[in-house]
Design a protein around this nucleic acid. Structure first.
Length: 478
RNA sequence: GGCGGCAUAGCCAAGUGGUAAGGCAGCGGUCUGCAAAACCGCUAUACACCGGUUCGAAUCCGGUUGCCGCCUCCA
């Protein structure tokens, strides 16, 4: 079964066949580190994390590179505002990015190059472009000459004549064509800068990716990813640079993820509704965030709201509740079960352009089926039932591994979730446990009125009770 | 203005021409002292609208309407 991937270049799904059999070279545009990472960064990073995990599970030898843009106007401006140097600022946010993404259980990329570590490669790359007549120096700046790359616009489906006619393009006298873009910018006083054949300066934005993926992958590689907004101009310009330099296709598959909206609105500076990962993590278990982000197809927009997060939370609880139930019967998963039918259906979903939404549907079906088998089995399930249920659990966990979900033992998950809720509501654990004990005593004495009164009180405190055969369990209500 | 995307039940959402996965919410039932959890049942008989292709379309084609994104170094 082959994987089919939607390729932005060409605009349709294609069979996935890496350039070199069995190997996948994947480059994803990482953040410009001038501020905390927001939920939109999380989506991009989680989506490509899942793609990398899945390709590895399909026995591909994946090399995953994700860069940090650590020199840029925004970083310089922000550093100036905060009166720190831009290197310090960038490093602060790189550390924060790692912290956020580690909490979100994102696996580290194999290489995380920074622009400032690859200035030499960038200068060499620009030199190649100048030598090939694709770029020109103008007063200490170097620009890419759009007219020298006839395929310009092939990724985003734009044509240059219409764009030149567009009112949005500003006139810059140093440029031969208004659409030409900067490869190298002459330094202004106080800015970070490096020596170059064109004087002191710093790289433009687009060139870093072309140069760095050349360093790791050479002239062509398999997957280039990023947010949809990067299609134009960023990725269009990367293609112009890399293909202009080498005359070979840059990346075979271009994959772009959709945006996260907040209450149906785009995150924007003017609305001031940027939602930072660290803030979402205060309210939600990391896997709730992942489940939410993966519950829509990666190319569709997804809407963040209190309600959608609560739904994701309910869903995750449901899965962990089953895992806990099975564990109580059979102990933890042995990891020895072969992959079953649910896994196969999950693979079908993932093979269809990484359709995690469909894959999650398979998980829920598996959960329902396992619950049903256990319900039907009654008090003492037969060994056969337990074996079947155990096999279903193995599939569920296997699917979870691809999505970066269900990685905690159920008890730890519920504890983790409880802690997050308690921090939010500032509820007093001791008080809760005391009330729970009082209610248990009342129930034992068959004083149900008192027991129910206490339970109502706990409900008001955001606590849900479950009276199980083996004792009372309390949880924080979503 | 140019390019692109989307429109599926109360809400979210998958759907690769053959009569609609899954989740959340709701209602009824089983279980329970009562609940909770779980399960079962019910909730789309015009898949935005209008045409067309086809034996057959949510799925393909054309058009209409409505939303949205990119074209501003925003994932």
């Amino acid at each position: 079964m082959t994987i089919r991937v939607y390729n932005t270049l060409g605009g349709k799904k294609e069979p996935f066949e890496p350039i070199e059999e069995g190997k996948v070279r994947m480059y994803v545009c990482g953040p410009t580190v001038y501020d905390s990472s927001h939920i939109g960064h999380a989506r991009s990073v989680v989506v490509f994390d899942v793609i990398a995990r899945y390709l590895r599970a399909q026995s591909y030898d994946v090399t995953y590179v994700r860069n940090f843009t650590d020199v840029d106007d925004k970083i310089i401006n922000r550093a100036r505002e905060l009166e720190v140097d831009s290197k310090t600022l960038a490093e602060t946010y790189i550390d924060e990015f790692h912290k956020d993404m580690d909490l979100l259980k994102v696996l580290r990329a194999d290489h995380e190059p920074k622009v400032t570590e690859h200035i030499d490669s960038i200068i060499k790359f620009i030199t190649i472009l100048i030598d090939r007549g694709c770029a020109y120096e103008s007063g200490g700046d170097v620009f890419f000459a759009i007219d020298r790359f006839k395929d310009y616009g092939k990724l985003s489906g734009r044509n240059t004549e219409e764009m030149e006619a567009g009112a949005r393009v500003g006139i810059d006298e140093r440029k031969r064509n208004p659409l030409d873009f900067a490869l190298w910018k002459a330094a202004k006083p106080g800015e970070p800068s490096w020596e170059s054949p064109w004087g002191v300066g710093r790289p433009g934005w687009h060139i870093e990716c072309s140069a760095m993926n050349y360093v790791f992958f050479g002239e062509s590689f398999d997957i280039h990813g990023g947010g949809k907004d990067l299609i134009f101009p960023h990725h269009e310009n990367e293609i112009a640079q890399s293909e202009g330099a080498f005359g070979k296709p840059m990346a075979k598959y271009w994959i772009h993820n959709g945006f996260v909206n907040i209450d149906r609105e785009k995150m924007s500076k003017s609305l001031g509704n940027f939602l930072m990962i660290k803030d979402v993590l205060k309210h939600h278990h990391p896997e709730v965030i992942r489940l939410f982000l993966l519950s829509n197809h990666y190319r569709s927009p997804i809407d963040y709201s209190v309600k959608s997060m609560e739904e994701a939370s309910s869903g995750l609880d449901k899965i962990y509740t089953l895992l806990e139930r099975i564990e109580a019967e059979t102990g933890p998963d042995t990891g020895k079960n072969p992959k079953g039918d649910y896994w196969n259906r999950f693979e079908d979903a993932m093979n269809d352009d990484f359709n995690t939404a469909r894959g999650i549907g398979v998980i829920f079906e598996a959960v329902r089926n396992a619950n049903r088998l256990l319900d039907e089995a009654g008090e003492t399930p037969s060994p056969e039932t337990l074996e079947t249920v155990g096999a279903i659990r193995s599939d569920i966990l296997e699917m979870g591994r691809i999505l970066g979900l269900l990685s905690e033992p159920p008890a730890a998950y519920f504890e983790h979730r409880k802690i997050i809720r308690l921090q939010q509501t500032k509820a007093d654990v001791k008080a809760i446990e005391q009330l729970v004990d009082e209610r248990t005593a009342a129930r034992k004495a068959r004083d149900f009125q008192k027991a129910d009164r206490i339970r109502d009180q706990l409900t008001d405190m955001g606590v849900t009770l479950e009276d199980r055969p083996d004792g009372v369990v309390w949880r924080m209500t979503k």
